[in-house]
């Protein structure tokens, strides 16, 4: 049985080795060598110069994740109480933008947020002062929230919908007002969804480069932009780029491990 299972996994194993393990090893190799192919840790030491970029990336990703949570959780909660038809329609609407290329969507935001864009035209029509948010970190955060919000809503909605009605009724029956039932039953039972939502928003947000390039105007460079520059830009330096990628991956892995640890008690419960 085990042998046969192993055989079935063979194509996947080959795929993984070719396109994940080997490239990963290459990244490690590049990160630890210089132009002459000699081993060095210089690439990592040079990372200190980019502390601000690391800080900005993590900060913006964290802010976007929090905003996604603040918007996405209440939305998911409201939708979970709707009829199936209503919920499916809403989910379709949430997913719909994802069918359009991210580049296109972000360009659309560019034309909305521009100084003479749709938003400011509307504001001037209403005789309100213009907003200058294009090419600021706020615009980048906005772009992240817009693009990654579905990744927060969907896992949370899935988990809340799965909570048994009778458990909620039991909590009411035992004297829980709506607020109490939410705080003591629905919120703790939906934590696993929140945790995976946070992961699914934070990880792409911390490594994005399109959004910051188009909406941040190059002024608020993020890790993704920095890495892209090392490989495709005129500062060509795949050794430094690999080192940045590696450190970023470690940071993401550490934050995910921390999150899982935080959610461990809940997961045990969900494994019912």
């Amino acid at each position: 049985m085990k042998r046969r299972g192993g055989l079935l996994a063979f194509p996947y194993a080959v795929w993984m080795i070719l396109f994940t393990v080997v490239p990963m090893l290459l990244v490690v190799w590049f990160a630890l060598t210089d132009e002459d192919g000699l081993p060095t840790v210089g690439n990592f030491i040079r990372l200190w110069d980019y502390g601000a970029v690391f800080g900005r990336s993590l900060g913006l990703a964290a802010v976007s994740t929090v905003i996604c949570l603040l918007i996405g959780y209440p939305l998911a909660y409201v939708l979970s109480r709707e009829t199936d038809a209503m919920r499916n329609t809403a989910m379709l609407l949430i997913m719909l933008p994802m069918w359009i290329n991210i580049l296109l969507r972000t360009y659309a935001w560019m034309s909305i947020l521009e100084n003479s864009g749709l938003l400011n035209q509307l504001l001037s029509f209403l005789r309100l002062p213009a907003l200058h948010i294009i090419n600021t970190p706020s615009a980048v955060a906005l772009g992240m929230v817009y693009n990654y919000l579905p990744f927060m809503v969907l896992p949370v909605l899935t988990v809340i919908t799965k909570i048994d009605d009778s458990v909620v009724e039991a909590a009411q029956d035992l004297g829980g007002s709506q607020a109490t039932v939410f705080r003591r039953v629905i919120l703790p039972l939906s934590l696993p969804g929140v945790l995976s939502g946070i992961t699914m928003v934070f990880v792409p947000a911390v490594s994005t480069f399109i959004i910051s390039k188009l909406l941040g105007g190059g002024k608020s460079m993020l890790l993704g932009d920095l890495i892209e520059m090392q490989f495709l830009g005129n500062t060509y330096n795949p050794y430094l780029g690999s080192a940045i990628s590696l450190v970023m991956m470690v940071i993401v892995l550490i934050s995910m491990a921390l999150m899982n640890r935080f959610g461990e008690g809940e997961e045990e419960v969900m494994g019912l």
Binding site: D164, A170, V185, L189, L272
Partner: peptide
């Protein structure tokens, strides 16, 4: 009044 539900409805967490 308090209820004992058909499927117990205990709090899994």
């Amino acid at each position: 009044v308090n209820t004992v539900f058909q499927k117990y409805a205990l709090f899994p967490h």
